[in-house]
Structure formats: C-alpha cells, structure tokens
C-alpha cells in the first residue's frame, strides 16, 4: 500500500503513463486549442457586445473588439433593476437563498438515495432504478401545467417554496451519483458492515469521501439549475423574484437595447463560472489510488 502510494505520487508529479510521446501530447494540445477557439467565439462575442457602446453595434465590417469599451450597458442594466419597487439587495438575497438551499439539499438527498439504490438490495430497488431513467426520458409539454396544479393545491404559488422544493429532487443528479457509486467495490461496504457501521455512516464516511469527482460535478449541475430558475411563472410578487429573472426582465424592458441584453447575459453567466472553477479544481485534484477499486 505504502509502495503504491509512493508510485502514485510519482505519477502525479510527472503525469506520465505508459508510452506517452511528447509529439502526441502537443498534437492533442493544438487540436483542443483550435476546437476551443470555435467553442469560445460566440461567448467572446457576447462579452464584446456587452462592452460595446450602442453606436458600434452596426458598423461594417463588424469588429471583433470594442473600439471604445464601456461599462454603460451594465450601468443601464442595474439602473433598470433599481427602478423596481423592492431594493436590489432583496433580489440578491432571494437568489442566494434559493440557490444555496437547492444545491445543498439536492446534493445531500441525491447522494444518500443514490448510495442506497446502487449498493443495497431491498424490495423495490429495481423498480425505483428504472423509474429514475424513465423520468429522465419522459419530456412532456403538459408536465409544467401539472406541476403548477400540484403546487397550487399545496398553496405554494407565490412563495419561496415554489422556487425551492420542485428543484430539489432532480432525477439527473440521482442518476449521475448512482452510476458513480455503483463503481465502489462491494467488498469495501461489506468490510464496513462487519465493523458494525450503519448504512448512514457507511454512506458518508466511507463511500462519499471517494466520490469527490461525481459530487463536485453534481454541485455544478445543481448550482447551475438552481441559479437559472426562472421564477416568472410560479412567483408573481416582486419580492420573491430572483436575480436571474430580474436580469432577464431588464434585458427586455424599456428600450430594446441589444447591449443591455448582452450585459445581463454576461452578468448571469458569472456565478456559475465561479462555482464551476472551484468545483472542477476539486475534481482534478482527485487522484484515485489503490484501495478504491477492486
């Protein structure tokens, strides 16, 4: 074990595996750069458009950069948002509340359920596992109406609950964790059971610490989904609206300004990027080593 740890450390330091040629690595790098530029181009344009003054939007030939970059579009956006009846800080609070609650509860509940579905035998396991996949595949235009009816029956419309509760149980999150936890060797769980650990402890102290890549990926998905919840259809009072909703509204409010719309998109884009970077770094740092797999 100690020996293999040393080897792992060495491999980690040099990032070397069987038969790596430097030429191949350079070719991969160049390929990824070219494709990456294609991927980034529309997003780069979005940022450029957000800092372009209005008069630069329609010159020919279209420029790939702003001649006189300005933050006016952002200022305009915030001004529109400030004109509402509730203070700006209220939207920030709403977004933080909704996003944090949904992300934390989703990760917590989905991990536990995924562990049980992947690693325990009990009556109903098979059916539940297939229901999750079916739920992912079933897309229907009437689901939102039915969800609305359910929420109305539960008196959730126009409260925070309407934003938070429906987003918690995402079948995609559960499916992701289930697939990943399924790879944990049964022997590890059996050993813990012999040592007298309960299921809850096995889940959180033995299985989950080895599931950092999947859990961090789930955090990215959950945050992104929660942050982008459009509150317009289930919440009508201004005081419950989230930042994303209001930014989208500001983009279409008043004068039809392409610049402000772009500024709103850039603004909404920033928090998911930050969370992505933080979580993804954790994923990369994970170095699976001996003892996790059989």
């Amino acid at each position: 074990m100690a020996q293999s740890m040393v080897n792992t450390e060495k491999l980690k330091a040099s990032n070397k595996q069987a038969g790596r040629k430097i030429g191949g690595t350079v070719a991969i790098f160049v390929f990824l750069i070219v494709l990456g530029l294609f991927m980034l181009f529309p997003i780069y344009l979005m940022i450029v458009m957000a800092i372009k003054p209005v008069e630069e939007l329609f010159i020919f030939p279209p420029k790939l950069h702003a001649i006189n970059p300005t933050l006016n579009n952002f200022k305009d956006m915030f001004e529109v948002m400030h004109q509402n009846r509730v203070p700006f800080s209220r939207y920030v609070f709403n977004s933080v509340l909704v996003t944090a609650t949904v992300t934390i509860l989703q990760c917590f509940f989905a991990s536990m359920a995924a562990f049980v579905l992947a690693k325990c035998k009990f009556p109903g396991n098979k059916i539940l596992n297939s229901i999750i996949v079916v739920a992912l595949l079933y897309q229907s235009n009437v689901i939102y109406i039915m969800q609305y009816i359910v929420m109305a029956k539960l008196h959730m419309i126009d409260t925070y609950w309407a934003l938070i509760l429906p987003a918690i149980a995402s079948p995609m999150g559960l499916f992701l964790m289930r697939q990943s936890i399924g790879q944990v060797p049964d022997a590890m769980i059996e050993a813990a059971k012999v040592d007298g650990a309960g299921l809850f402890r096995i889940c959180w102290q033995i299985v989950m610490p080895n599931q950092k890549p999947a859990l961090m990926t789930l955090i990215i998905f959950a945050f992104q989904a929660a942050w982008n919840i459009q509150s317009g259809t289930v919440v009508f009072q201004e005081q419950y609206k989230t930042l994303t909703t209001v930014a989208t509204q500001a983009a279409s409010a008043g004068l039809a300004r392409a610049g402000v719309a772009m500024a709103a998109q850039v603004f909404v884009f920033i928090p998911p990027i930050v969370v992505f970077m933080l979580a993804q770094r954790q994923v990369i740092e994970t170095m699976a080593h001996s003892g996790i797999k059989d």
Partner: peptide, 16 residues
C-alpha cells in the same frame, strides 16, 4: 435514506 429524495421526487415529478 431514500425517503427525503423520494418524497420530493414523488410530489414534483411522479405525480405530474
């Protein structure tokens, strides 16, 4: 351990 997830899943996905 399944209950918390399944409760929300039942109400907001299965029922609709």
């Amino acid at each position: 351990m399944l209950a918390p997830f399944m409760l929300f899943f039942l109400v907001f996905t299965i029922v609709p």
